[in-house]
Design a protein around this nucleic acid. Sequence first.
DNA 1: TTTATTTATTTTGTATACAATTCATATGTA
DNA 2: TACATATGAATTGTATACAAAATAAATAAA
Lengths: 247, 247
Amino acid sequence: MSRTAPTAAVARAPEAPRKSQNDLIHSQVFTAILEQRLAPGTKLAEDTLGQIFGVSRTVIRAVLQRLAHERIVRIHPNRGAFVAEPSPEEAHEVLEARRLIEEGIMRLAIQKCSPSDIAMLQDMVAAEQKSLDAGDHQVWVRQSGDFHLRLARIAGSETLTAYLRELISRTSLIIVQYQKGNLSSCACDEHLDIIDALSEKDEARAVTVMLDHLSTLENNLHLSGESPKSDLYAIFQQQSENQEPAS
Amino acid sequence: MSRTAPTAAVARAPEAPRKSQNDLIHSQVFTAILEQRLAPGTKLAEDTLGQIFGVSRTVIRAVLQRLAHERIVRIHPNRGAFVAEPSPEEAHEVLEARRLIEEGIMRLAIQKCSPSDIAMLQDMVAAEQKSLDAGDHQVWVRQSGDFHLRLARIAGSETLTAYLRELISRTSLIIVQYQKGNLSSCACDEHLDIIDALSEKDEARAVTVMLDHLSTLENNLHLSGESPKSDLYAIFQQQSENQEPAS
DNA sequence: TTTATTTATTTTGTATACAATTCATATGTA
DNA sequence: TACATATGAATTGTATACAAAATAAATAAA
């Protein structure tokens, strides 16, 4: 009996991490950005957020710095915090990193995933499809990210999971800025393909499907066009090259 | 002439990012941990650090939170900040992630590296060897990390570079805790092998050498032994399984 | 009108003050 | 002695106050 239930003076298990104020506000802002309710470039004024969440600027500043380290918020010194506006180059970087990391995650996940994991993944895709049918694009974007994140958890690496979480939220910002059509249609099928390859332990196919999935995503962006607005420096420089100044 | 040097009312290039107080203190603590002058488990009291660097706790807190997000400092709520003590599981995770990311970095670097990059890498290894001969272990550890980091920069991905920087600093903590002998001897040769494969554009060999290099590193740790001290919970639980309680 | 300069307002960066919690020491009890 | 409890000191969490910087508005000059 002592096997299943330790008896005597045994220390309690590591205490449940009750969410701090910081965590709570962070996840609110994080989710808002993930669901694309906060557009890139939006200013996140400390005082405003403090009043919204009923706390002082102290805790808001901590949250903003945390989001900045996750690269979904950009802090300009003495100027404030803004929702990040990834450049085309950064967008490419993020997708490149995702291909690298998620290929590794697939290889790990294929070894470790259990039948219950498969079932969970199937449920998640079903929920995705539901949101998609309901036209709830915001929720679907988050759910789609959750699917990839679940694979990382199955792979069993907290480190890679943390990195992927960042890359996924940055992808969300990238999609807002650079997506042309709505990719929504085929995405669920590709997720189902991934589950399929996973349940058959077909590593080669699983990796291929995942990489194709991410490349499709990148190819549906138009990153080649002029950048959104940030580097009007380059624009003016080009201007001064073409036409001589008046003086 | 207007081609090479823009003439008239052209905006200045993005201003050079002058280091803030935060950056300065961060890099001091970061380097101290990287060079293994700050041992794992060391308490980083806010007031103490504030007096050392001549600033208030406000800025120290920001630095500590930043270090915590980089996983080289652990913050226990209401209890303070401590230099991280990676568990054996975490150590394995970090090396696993490094293998994944640095393989990708090698593939990218091999396409992009120029002769001057090769020369730079050779200089860096020479400096490593110098520190090694001088017995300056602390500096060597940092230089060894800088070598890997340089490869990431050559690969051209800021995102992957940032992740690798974190993984390298965590590796430094892992080495302090779990290294048995001194790996120092062969490490420089392995770095030279990497440069060799890189300059010959031999992708397969470059990847192999890098993976072996990292696996060698992990194999020289003893992660299987009893964990340092953190989970004495598990220890007591095991105890209660083996021997019946007295009452 | 357009542009430049000055003034006023707002916002961020940092230090400090106070409340809440934890840690260390001391006191009491078996 | 060993253990538990209570008291005091030290440390962290948060709010506020003030200085520095940036933004906005207003005034002056072309």
